[in-house]
């Protein structure tokens, strides 16, 4: 007997729960052969607002955890993805508009796992590299230390639907930021599957919030939302302009990668402590030296 086709209507992972868009809208996703595959939530600026509220709620306790513990949690996430890597690889090939090779998808999952492991390792080491005891010409200890910025907006790569997303998430959360990420709109499915993995990982709900939808609808709100302290984005020229103008109003840090440059997300440049620095603030403290 022919089985009935099971098409999914997946939900996205926000605030530790799976939500539909508050608008109720979805957009149809087709697989590489052009067949209908799933209805994906078309998130709105209000979903973004709600996700930021969720991130704000999760933020203080995430930032307060010991760096060692944050590293453990991110490492465990890598472990879990590794164990379910076939599922993620399938998600990448299924939703891809281009006919991509299964081996390429598997490479992308492997690189994503490696990236998480890389940044997990930095959790309790970045302070040694980025912080400092400064020599000053007075009887003071002078320390510079790092603090997370707060809630960071991420606009993920359109092409590298998993690796591009993880490469932005990992360096932001390792230092204690929480993130709201807009997934690839060309292939949002790996982000949906990643959400299902995040939900069963030890990462507290609200630390990573994933939205699917159209970047043209979400980018203006990413730019102007005052509660987002930084936006890291792969963006087109138009989107970069929107981000720069909106961010100026709210004095927000913007770091963009040019979408037209055909970014190589496998590049070593995405594994660097300076990617973590992108979402950190420095605090310098003067403390008198006792007698």
């Amino acid at each position: 007997m022919k089985r009935l086709l099971i098409t999914k209507t997946p939900k996205v992972y926000v605030g530790g729960a799976f939500i539909r868009s508050e608008s109720g809208r979805v957009f149809a996703m087709k697989d590489a052969d052009g067949n209908f595959f799933a209805n994906i939530p078309q998130c709105t600026r209000k979903d973004l607002r709600n996700a930021v509220e969720a991130a704000a709620k999760a933020g203080p306790s995430w930032a307060k955890r010991t760096p060692y513990n944050r590293g453990q949690i991110i490492y465990r996430l890598a472990e879990m993805i590794e164990a379910r890597s076939l599922e993620l690889a399938e998600a990448i090939t299924l939703g891809s508009t281009k006919k991509s090779l299964v081996t390429a998808a598997r490479n992308e999952v492997a690189a994503s796992v490696d990236r998480l492991v890389y940044y997990a390792g930095w959790a309790d080491k970045l302070e040694q590299v980025l912080g400092n005891v400064n020599p000053v010409a007075a009887p003071y200890f002078n320390f510079t230390m790092t603090e997370p910025m707060g809630i960071v907006g991420l606009i993920a790569s359109q092409e590298a639907s998993l690796l591009g997303l993880i490469s932005l998430i990992a360096p932001a959360i390792v230092a204690g930021n929480t993130v709201v990420a807009s997934a690839s709109e060309l292939n949002p499915y790996p982000a949906v599957v990643l959400g299902e993995m995040l939900a069963t990982s030890d990462l507290p709900g609200g630390v990573v919030n994933l939205l699917t939808g159209f970047h043209r609808e979400l980018v203006p709100t990413f730019a102007t939302h005052a509660h987002l302290r930084a936006v890291i984005a792969e963006a087109t020229a138009d989107e970069r302009k929107t981000l720069a103008l909106g961010a100026a109003e709210t004095v927000k840090r913007i770091h963009t990668f040019k979408a037209e440059d055909n970014i190589n997300w496998y590049s070593d440049s995405f594994e660097s402590v300076y990617r973590i620095q992108d979402t950190l603030e420095y605090k310098t403290v003067w403390h008198p030296i006792g007698a």
Binding site: R49, V52, A56, G59, I151, T224, H225, A226, H227, E249
Partner: peptide, 16 residues
């Protein structure tokens, strides 16, 4: 027209 951060207002309890 822009969403605001809660800590931008006086007497706010939130700081993150």
């Amino acid at each position: 027209g822009a969403y605001q951060a809660p800590y931008a207002f006086s007497e706010a309890a939130e700081s993150y």
